[in-house]
């Protein structure tokens, strides 16, 4: 008798759990972008997915866990017209319990005052929609959609 199909083994979904630190984030990005469903997207969309996930995962490593070790789970699933993403970690909550606005840092400044950070949430918000953050029982859960239209 053939084995029952695994209901979680779907070609249009990819999930993995990684250690929340930069080298593991890099390896995870390589794997997510080289596997279905992301590998089948147009090059421009693949790079959008990679940038967004890089920013989200590095934020978890740098801010939610900071100096602590921890894990982060990523799931991407193909929906009609969008890539559905979920990122779950057990680090510190978002300050104030909500997501940063992602306002772009000022750039019309003297060179010595140019911003070296603060770009991450702007990039995330530029390339996603329906961002939703929930904190429950010590867990951060971030959901968003990446529209599958070529970015202008």
């Amino acid at each position: 008798m053939p084995p029952a199909p695994d209901p979680f083994a779907q070609a249009d979904t990819h999930d993995l759990v990684i250690r929340a630190e930069p080298a593991s984030v890099r390896a995870a990005l390589r794997r997510v972008t080289a596997s279905p469903p992301v590998v089948d997207l147009a090059t421009d969309l693949r790079s959008t997915v990679e940038i967004v996930l890089a920013e989200v995962l590095n934020n978890v490593a740098e801010h939610a866990y900071a100096e602590l070790e921890g894990h982060v789970a990523v799931t991407v699933a193909l929906h009609p017209g969008a890539l559905w993403c979920e990122v779950v970690d057990e680090g510190a909550a978002m300050p104030g319990g909500s997501l940063p606005e992602g306002r772009l840092p000022q750039t019309d400044l003297a060179e010595t005052d140019l911003p070296e950070g603060g770009f991450g949430w702007h990039l995330i918000r530029s390339m996603t929609r329906d961002l939703e953050y929930r904190r429950r029982r010590g867990t951060n859960r971030l959901n968003f959609l990446i529209p599958l239209v070529e970015y202008p």
Binding site: L29, S47, E50, L114, E116, G117, F119, G120, L123
Partner: peptide, 11 residues
């Protein structure tokens, strides 16, 4: 590939 950390480093 460049992320916001890489961009910050170039600035």
């Amino acid at each position: 590939f460049l992320d916001s950390s890489g961009l910050g480093a170039i600035v």
